[in-house]
């Protein structure tokens, strides 16, 4: 399989640069503003985009991303709407990988086969589905892999060496290491432990390892970026959207707030290899 994700990591490796994966919620705070944010991400310094598929009951997410999902749903976002955002993005950018991140039920209700076809058509490269562990690979992971989509798995501090092979078996694109036990938006307890965990995963796989959960500042990016092939940021970007709003509505600061923060984090990440 050679996907946009594989090609992007090959480029980054050649440049000796860790990847910045930026998460935004599809449709937050409204459909048009969210599209503008999405379109601005590559220029701001995002190497990979994680696009959130809003769900009413995001059990693994903290308050910030829950609120982002609620704003998107209130704005009328749907699964088809999120795919439409990707299609629009692809008119101008055919290289930045987009990973759809969310929960299984909206996909299950849309229909797995129909979803895979539509996701491919729209230009989605990979999937991170939080509530589909390896034990449920027949649901979506296997059909997605067969269709040429990457299926990116979360590994966590509770995924021990015995379990890692099970988790990594059908993982492709990259491995997403969750830096802590907890929900999105929490705080990393030990940075050293993150480095060790990444090495532990790398003993089991050739895939790049990206670290996410708890990375909030440019300094965090520089620090964690030293230990991994990339970092993922989400909560701080969704918070940037939230704090830019007035009466719940987007302002002329909203897109810029996200863009500036991504640029700042990308700057921090550049220091990781220096």
């Amino acid at each position: 399989m050679n996907t946009r994700i594989d090609r992007r990591f090959a480029e980054l490796k050649a440049q000796n640069r860790p990847a910045l994966a930026a998460y935004v919620m599809g449709g937050d705070p409204d459909l048009a503003t969210s599209q503008a944010i999405l379109n601005a991400l590559p220029q701001a310094g995002a190497d990979i985009i994680e696009l959130g598929l809003p769900f009413s009951d995001p059990m693994a997410d903290g308050v910030a991303i829950q609120m982002g999902a609620q704003r998107a749903l209130k704005a009328g976002q749907t699964l088809l709407g999120v795919l439409g955002m990707v299609e629009e993005f692809r008119r101008k950018d055919d290289t930045t990988p987009i990973v759809l991140m969310g929960y299984y039920n909206p996909i299950y209700i849309f229909g797995v086969e129909r979803f895979i076809a539509a996701a491919k058509q729209a230009g989605i490269d990979g999937l991170i589905i939080v509530d589909l562990p390896a034990e449920e690979d027949d649901e979506l992971c296997i059909p997605a892999l067969e269709a040429g989509l990457n299926f990116i798995r979360l590994t966590t501090p509770t995924t021990d060496d015995k379990r890692l092979p099970t988790v990594l078996a059908n993982t492709s694109g990259f491995v997403y290491y969750v830096s802590m036990t907890g929900i999105t938006g929490g705080a990393i307890k030990s940075r050293g432990a993150v480095g060790e965990a990444v090495q532990r995963i790398k003993a089991h796989t050739e895939l790049p390892v990206i670290v996410g959960f708890g990375i909030k500042t440019a300094d965090d990016a520089a620090e964690i970026g030293r230990h991994a092939d990339g970092i993922a940021v989400g909560t701080v970007l969704v918070n940037a959207v939230a704090t830019s709003l007035e009466d719940g509505k987007a302002t002329d600061k909203t897109v810029g707030a996200v863009r500036d923060l991504v640029a700042e984090l990308a700057g921090g990440l550049q220091r990781a290899r220096s």
Binding site: M59, A60, Y104, V130, D131, L132, P133, A134, E135, E136, R153, L154, T155, T156, P157, T158, T159, D160, R163, V167, V178, T181, G182
Partner: peptide, 9 residues
């Protein structure tokens, strides 16, 4: 068993 990996073990 539709849970996040953290809970799987």
């Amino acid at each position: 068993r539709f849970v996040a990996e953290t809970l799987m073990p």
